[in-house]
Design a binder for these strands. Structure first.
Length: 485
RNA sequence: GGCCCGUUGGUCAAGAGGUUAAGACUCCAGAUUUUCAUUCUGGCAACAUGGGUUCAAUUCCCGUACGGGUCACCA
């Protein structure tokens, strides 16, 4: 741990889902070390016994797998600084907490939860009144003997100030009088985040602490802890928060009311992990000397540097994510694309539909796989439609002209044996030529008759091919009936 | 409320003491396309505010406003 290699960590608490802001923190943490050949550690912060969630650790590991953020040390794969799950490190924290007490930087507090609560309620005192800070040795021994439950608190300096220099935000200074005698060890024997992350980061040789901006104001407390132990301070890299916008246009820390905010939600909605990673990489970071926006993980590793980190919060924009996703979908090889698109199509389409051809039409037309059902809804049902749809000014069509076209075209189609796009296209094109009509006018009539909506994923003959012969003819006949009425 | 952080178009975001203040998404218009989408071209749109410092400030400093964060036996 004394080597000069950059070491970062991702230390999520197992909540059961991977918040997208958390994932971005993991990404930056990963990139910071990997851009310089460093080490990346995964540590599970599960010291809150009341909020344990079954299987939560798997979600974290799975997400890192899917996004390609592989770690060098962590649960499952081990490493020289294990264990990597904090609940398995209780003894370590206890030992260091005792050390702090011995050195006079911490003390036992026997105050009951009730007393603390009343302190809080009885206006004025914002926090703990340091009641147990100066308990005599005898008093302490006595309480211990009586088995009074206690916590261990950090003894903050009463005067002066504590500062540090953040890699992103620069010099930050906080008055010590602002600092609470925060709890280091809880009554249940578990440490608090405020304590164990410091111990672990030191023990695990973390050189750069990458985390959200919400920790910046409590960092001086951690600085004091490092000093109390006589440990070397890591570099701090605080990240601007990820924000969301609610219906009232109010911006705040991205949370569930802003929509899908977990990685798995996004994946379920048809977003590709690569697209998600690419997008969030750019929320708070920008490459130097380049306008590049499309990045693979490897490219991010090449380009990443702390200088590109931004200080101001970024609003998560689903619209832009969609754009990234559509780009990634377009780039997807056909087999990978089909693997995702086909099951969805088979699920919603009647069996006479050529789902493979339909999938091909959709490839450049969807922004997320979850778009598919809506975009092919016209295939599964024949919606009510306005006859005015047949009117199109560019092609100079009207319901009347379309009726004429359809009546002419129907027998031609009935006589068409080979039902594929090219043949159908020739048939319609030749018909148009023979009647001296614009090809577009003919196509418009047929397409509207078949699809019953203005915007469709594909041209007239492409859709006819997808529908197949019977369904197409049936739809055209229906259209003629409607137009005659 | 105290403390901390931030403020370039609607969003992401580059930028520098002197620039026509990039680029991307969105939106609009046009071209191509048998429709749509793709693709291409073009367009709309920004330095929160007041005071300094300076020959010159959107860029540096201070204040104000606004926004966010934080004040747990949660992380």
């Amino acid at each position: 741990m004394s080597d000069n290699i950059i070491t970062t960590r991702f230390a999520p608490s197992p909540t059961g889902f991977m918040h997208i802001g958390n994932l971005r923190t993991a990404l930056y943490s990963y990139l910071l070390s990997k851009s310089q050949g460093g080490k990346f550690i995964l540590r599970i912060e599960d010291t809150d016994q009341e909020r344990l969630v079954e299987g939560a650790e798997d979600v974290i590991i799975k997400t890192l797998e899917m996004t390609g953020l592989d770690y060098d040390e962590g649960p499952g794969i081990g490493g020289e600084h294990g264990p990597y799950i904090q609940s398995e490190r209780k003894d370590i924290y206890k030992k260091y907490a005792e050390e702090l007490i011995d050195k006079g930087f911490a003390y036992r507090c026997f105050c009951s939860a009730e007393r603390l609560k009343s302190l809080h309620d009885d206006a004025g005192i914002g926090g703990y009144d340091r009641h147990c800070r100066e308990l005599s040795r005898e008093e302490t021994e006595q309480k211990l003997a009586q088995g009074v439950p206690y916590v261990i608190r950090q003894k903050m300096p009463l005067e002066g100030s504590t500062s540090f220099t953040d890699e992103v935000y620069g010099y930050v200074e906080v008055e010590n009088s602002e600092l609470q005698d925060q709890i280091l060890m809880k009554a249940d024997g578990f440490p608090t985040y405020n304590f164990c992350h410091v111990v672990d980061d030191h023990l695990m040789g973390v050189t750069h602490v990458v985390r959200g901006n919400e920790y910046i104001i409590s960092t001086p407390k951690y600085v004091l802890l490092y000093r109390a132990f006589g440990w070397e301070l890591p570099k701090y890299v605080h990240l601007p928060l990820l924000m969301g916008r609610d219906e009232e246009e109010k911006v705040s820390k991205l949370s569930k009311r802003h929509g899908a905010v977990s990685f798995q939600d996004l994946v379920e909605q048809g977003y590709l992990p690569e697209a998600i990673v690419n997008y969030i990489a750019l929320l708070g970071w920008c490459p130097k000397d380049s306008n590049q926006e499309m990045f693979t993980l490897d490219e991010l590793k090449q380009s990443f540097s702390m200088e590109g980190l931004s200080k101001s919060p970024a609003v998560f924009d689903y619209e832009k994510l969609r754009w990234f996703n559509s780009e990634y979908i377009k780039k997807l090889p056909d087999d990978e694309y089909n693997e995702k698109a086909l099951p969805i199509l088979r699920d919603v389409c009647p069996e006479y539909i050529d789902t493979e051809k339909l999938a091909a039409l959709l490839h450049s037309r969807i922004s997320a796989f979850s778009d598919i059902p809506d975009s092919v809804a016209f295939v599964t049902s024949r919606a009510d439609m306005e006859l005015s749809l047949y009117a199109n000014k560019k092609n100079k069509t009207t319901p009347e002209s379309c009726l004429e076209t359809l009546e002419d075209v129907l027998p031609l189609l009935e006589n068409t044996v080979s039902w594929d796009n090219d043949t159908l296209f020739v048939v319609l094109k030749e018909y148009a030529a023979s009647k001296e009509k614009k090809a577009g006018a003919v196509m418009w009539a047929v397409r509207i008759a078949a699809a019953r909506q203005a915007v469709t994923p594909g041209g007239a003959t492409e859709l006819m091919e997808v529908f197949g012969r019977e369904e197409t003819l049936s739809r055209i006949r229906q259209a003629i009936d409607e137009l005659r009425a």
